[in-house]
Design a protein around this nucleic acid. Structure first.
Length: 279
DNA sequence: CAAGAATCCTGTCAGC
DNA sequence: TGCTGACAGGATTCTT
């Protein structure tokens, strides 16, 4: 679930609670997530000072003093529950708990257990199996019309599938791909190889704009997801097509040939788009 | 080799 | 109220 804006929001929420703090206690309640947690995770966390955070795609990296990074992926339903030691925080599916010396408490909650946590040496973060081969950060300058065109050129999949591929661009998921394609006026069914050129240039701009706006809004809060501080992100109200099957298209409402937002299935997942506005 | 399907797991919601 | 089936932010692994 959480896509780049939500992961970024979560990371920003963790900073004030953990950065510069020493971990007094760490507790693993359940180790069988997507992949088994490292056996010595709790031991490695306990007593460690948290230096800083970094986000890469949909991953959060928490750097510890001593040269290790904790690599966190929230999967579909993962979130970080922030509170205080001793406060009533009874929650199901809290697989990892971290308590800081100054009384802060962070719980990793993930009902579906598609998330994962691993340890990696900080100086080799990008060589980790899960990060190696990941495409450019969409908000970096390295992600531009030329680079996107190059990676779409030899692809025969629909553009929707290509953008969900993290090796093309890192951090996009189902929602933001739908939104960016709508804003760029590109059909999700269009073959990726036909996008390079002017369409790719427009697509890059819309991807960046959509993500920037979503980050500024604190992400999109769905059923399982709220910001670490419990506040709701509000970008879901700005969705133009996602989850809006049957509603009028914001681009061509009521115009001849516009039948509103349509839902189709690609890669087994819902795609929302306007067949008239997106070509 | 590339592209699509199946898969992991739990919760929620709509419909009957 | 309770049951059933569809569906949900992801991404690897298995089949065609």
């Amino acid at each position: 679930m959480p896509e780049l804006p939500e992961v970024e929001t979560v990371m920003r929420g963790l900073r004030p609670v953990l950065e510069g703090k020493r971990i007094a206690r760490a507790l693993v309640n359940r180790a069988d997530l997507r992949w088994a947690l490292p056996p010595h995770l709790a031991k490695r966390l306990t007593g460690a000072r948290v230096e800083n955070f970094r986000r890469r795609g949909k991953y959060i990296l928490m750097r510890l003093q001593g040269g290790d990074s904790v690599l966190i992926h929230l999967g579909m339903s993962g979130r970080m529950l922030i509170g205080h030691v001793g406060a009533n925080t009874e929650t199901k599916h809290e697989h990892l708990v971290i308590e800081t010396e100054d009384g802060g408490r962070v719980g990793f909650v993930d009902p579906r257990r598609f998330g994962s946590i691993d340890l990696v040496r900080t100086d080799a973060e990008d060589h980790h199996k899960l990060l190696a081969g990941m495409g450019p950060e969409p908000l970096d300058d390295a992600f531009n019309a030329a680079s996107l065109s190059a990676s779409l050129n030899d692809r025969r999949t629909p553009i929707k599938a290509a953008l969900l591929d993290q090796s093309v661009v890192a951090g996009l998921g189902n929602i933001y791909v739908c939104e960016a394609l709508f804003r760029a006026g590109i059909s999700p069914l269009r073959l990726a190889r036909t996008v390079p050129g002017a369409r790719a240039a427009r697509l890059v701009l819309e991807i960046k704009a959509t993500l920037r706006e979503a980050v500024a809004a604190g992400g999109s809060s769905l059923r399982d997801y709220v910001q670490p501080d419990g506040e709701l992100g509000y970008f879901q109200h700005a969705w133009k097509v996602y989850g809006r099957e049957g509603e009028p298209c914001p681009e061509c409402p009521g115009m001849l040939g516009c039948k509103g937002i349509k839902r189709i299935v690609q890669l087994g997942r819902s795609t929302f788009y306007c067949p008239r506005a997106q070509r």
